[in-house]
Design a protein around this nucleic acid. Structure first.
Lengths: 223, 223
DNA sequence: TAGATTGTTAATCGATTAACAATC
DNA sequence: TAGATTGTTAATCGATTAACAATC
């Protein structure tokens, strides 16, 4: 399936949006009555494009990066497409990425429940904080907040792949060397520190909450 | 200043990053000793590019969208540049965008303190939630959580420009018509609902926390 | 003046869109 | 078979990078 395999970053970033729209389409279809068990839900690139506010060309180009799973004259089977994109995004069940949370304050707390509830593909296996008042608390079922001092031993034992950073910029800066050394391959970074620049070889998704809000402000004022 | 004025979206999205790097440069400089009061801190496009992991060409092209504030042979004055970009991003003091928070649960709570602490250009003036247990609580100084029923009256009186959505997807879907009708011009949307598609004429910044995490997963598994 | 670095134009690169032949 | 829609190649568009003349 992913042998075609030359998906560019813009394409990859669109995958979650396809996944959302297809999920909703599938949900709506299954909630409707009167479908024969053998009925197949199909959607054409042009209809999906209309819904998502893009072009049919883009939809077809994107899907073809991963191998053609459409039917000429008919369209794409929604459930097949959904499963396909789901596997691309989340891997298979056993592949969930082991993830740790650094910083379990208010933001970390909200983000951890978000990961547990609204994402697939990740498994939160540990949480760390410098604040002694938080250490020992149970962040969620099976995850107790540990002191930062235990980070190294934990990583050696459990080999997390992803770290979610909900700490001040300064702290992220000081910790980033350490985390890469401990084998972390990806970051989801809320700390306003550009890890990507420091470690160009590591896959990093800098979220920068503030950045998006700033550019929104610019656009509201100037457009 | 913004008469050159043909900044494309990619350029606008880079502005916050410039702002961060220039802030740090300025901070470091002012912390150093031995500067004469009249010393000016300059930085060349190539040095800034090296720090940020981009090219000198891009830096110069970007800055020139807003009018050239460099000095040939010398570079850019850090503080001038910082003030200039700051004004672009945040407007002037009196222009802070009046903002409301919809959904004051865990995420909303974290985000509200984030807005108060780490952003400029916004002024949180109201918060709303459907949960009666939250209504009446003081979210932060001067902002008490109101029932959603008071939204319309509030908007008519205070005319907020931006809404931050920290509510479930479904709720966002139901509320979006209403919010646009009430004069909201920009959204910072954590609800996984594509407002941008519904209202192409409205400036929307969809954050989609989950999306960024999903594409990170793809890249970790496939690259 | 000589050296450095900007401002700006031109070249390149990549992503999006359009077109159309293949085929269900 | 005829109609529809994909898969894929070609054309367009825009953003990034390179080059260089202007100038501090």
């Amino acid at each position: 399936m992913s042998i075609h395999g030359k998906a560019s970053l813009p394409v990859i970033k669109r995958l979650p949006k396809y996944y959302r729209y297809l999920s909703n389409l599938s949900k709506d279809w299954h909630n409707e009555n009167g479908h024969n068990k053998k009925d197949e839900q199909n959607i054409s690139s042009s209809e999906l494009a209309r819904l998502m506010g893009t072009t049919a060309s883009q939809v077809r180009q994107d899907f073809n990066c991963f191998g053609g799973f459409g039917q000429q004259g008919v369209g794409y089977k929604v459930d097949v497409l959904l499963a396909e994109i789901g596997t691309l995004l989340f891997g298979t069940e056993g592949e969930r990425l082991p993830t740790i949370l650094i910083g379990a304050g208010r933001l970390g707390n909200a983000v951890s429940s978000f990961i547990a509830r609204d994402t697939n593909g990740y498994r939160l296996i540990g949480a760390f904080d410098v604040n002694p008042a938080l250490v020992g608390k149970e962040l969620m079922q099976g995850v107790t907040i540990c002191p930062l001092g235990e980070l190294e031993a934990f990583c050696q034992q459990h080999k997390p792949a992803v770290a979610v950073l909900c700490i001040p910029r300064q702290a992220a800066q000081e910790l980033s060397d350490e985390l890469v050394r401990l084998g972390i391959r990806g970051f989801w970074n809320f700390s306003h520190y550009d890890l990507s620049v420091v470690y160009p070889g590591v896959t990093v998704e800098n979220v920068h909450l503030g950045d998006s809000l700033m550019s929104l402000g610019y656009r509201l004022r100037n457009e």
